[in-house]
């Protein structure tokens, strides 16, 4: 509830106590009286927020309901909010399909491996760049930034990966993008603004080496930014498909997004010459699996988010604003 005396929220003890303190106040003095202007403001704001909530939540609810409805009910437009003729046939098909489950596990594998590599490389690049005494950090920063704006193009990229022997391996998906320069900048800014240099001096006095300092002092103090990096990178890997389609050759290595994408778009044929039975099977599969696949593919990242969310806003803001 926004109050006329919202000032009290700015106490030094942080926003987490806000609710308790407000309710304490409310017990002592009764509800705070709102001026008419406040009321109007609140009404408009709640209406606007409710509107935004509906816009954001409706597609999610629709997909969820559609995934639990009989496919035909979805096609004929009977589903709009609640599941119609409850059915889990989409899910049972997915979980019984060995090929689909394998692609799912492959995606988990690539995401975990890729995120671990990303995190390691990003921290190792960002921390030195945050140390003011590090000689030549402007040069390194310049070189890194250069890659944000210029790339070699698809064919040279493919040739490079192939000549490095990474073609048809998961390394081709996790090594070329091991560092996102944007995330390095965010992490570097966090390190240089949130971790006082005095800590380093103190640790150094006690005989602490740089790497030990990074592991024992810097990282434990950097939970927010690590959480942010994990989220950015993991979502990136989970949703990636283009490199997967280009670099993976064995179907046994295909990831979930490749399959999801194929099922969703292969039935949109632009070819005039097509067999009705093929069209029917592609269409049928898409109708059957579309929504349950979307739910299954979104769930891992939705599950990850709550664990990270409490750090998320803080981490991004700290990294982004104080440049």
């Amino acid at each position: 509830m926004v109050t006329a005396r919202g000032k009290s929220a700015r106490g030094s003890s942080g926003y987490r106590d806000l609710g308790r303190r407000l309710s304490d106040k409310a017990k002592r003095r009764g509800p705070i009286r709102l001026t008419p202007a406040d009321t109007v403001f609140n009404v408009i704001m709640y209406a606007a927020l409710a509107f935004v909530l509906i816009i954001v939540a409706y597609p999610l609810i629709f997909v969820l309901s559609a995934s639990f409805s009989e496919p035909y009910a979805v096609i004929s437009g009977q589903v709009w909010l609640y599941p119609v003729r409850f059915s889990t046939v989409g899910y049972t098909t997915i979980f019984r399909d060995a090929g689909l489950m394998r692609t799912f596990l492959n995606s988990v594998h690539v995401t975990a491996l890729g995120t671990a590599i990303n995190l390691m490389c990003t921290v190792m690049a960002a921390y030195p760049l945050s140390v003011k005494t590090f000689v030549g950090r402007g040069v390194f920063m310049g070189i890194l930034s250069f890659t944000m704006f210029f790339g070699g193009g698809l064919i040279p990229f493919f040739l490079l990966v192939r000549n490095l022997g990474l073609y048809n391996t998961y390394w081709a998906l996790v090594l070329p993008g091991a560092i996102s320069v944007y995330n390095v900048i965010v992490a570097r800014t966090f390190f240089s603004t949130s971790i006082p240099y005095e800590l380093y001096e103190a640790a150094e006095l006690d005989g602490c080496s740089d790497i030990y300092y990074l592991i024992r002092v810097v990282l434990p103090l950097s939970a927010p930014i690590l959480a942010v990096l994990v989220m950015y990178y993991a979502v990136g890997h989970w949703n990636a498909y283009f490199n997967h389609m280009i670099f993976l050759k064995d179907k046994a290595k295909f990831t979930f997004q490749i399959t999801l994408r194929s099922i969703l778009i292969q039935n949109q044929n632009s070819d005039m010459m097509i067999d009705a039975s093929v069209l029917q099977r592609q269409q049928g599969l898409a109708d059957l699996l579309k929504y349950s696949l979307i739910v299954v593919s979104s769930t891992p990242m939705l599950l990850l988010y709550p664990f990270i969310q409490k750090h998320f806003v803080k981490g991004v803001m700290v990294g982004a604003i104080k440049g």
Binding site: G99, K251, S262, I263, Q282, L285
Partner: peptide, 10 residues
């Protein structure tokens, strides 16, 4: 071609 209506060709 990898098509959705056929499984692993191998």
């Amino acid at each position: 071609q990898d098509v959705t209506y056929i499984g692993d060709l191998n």
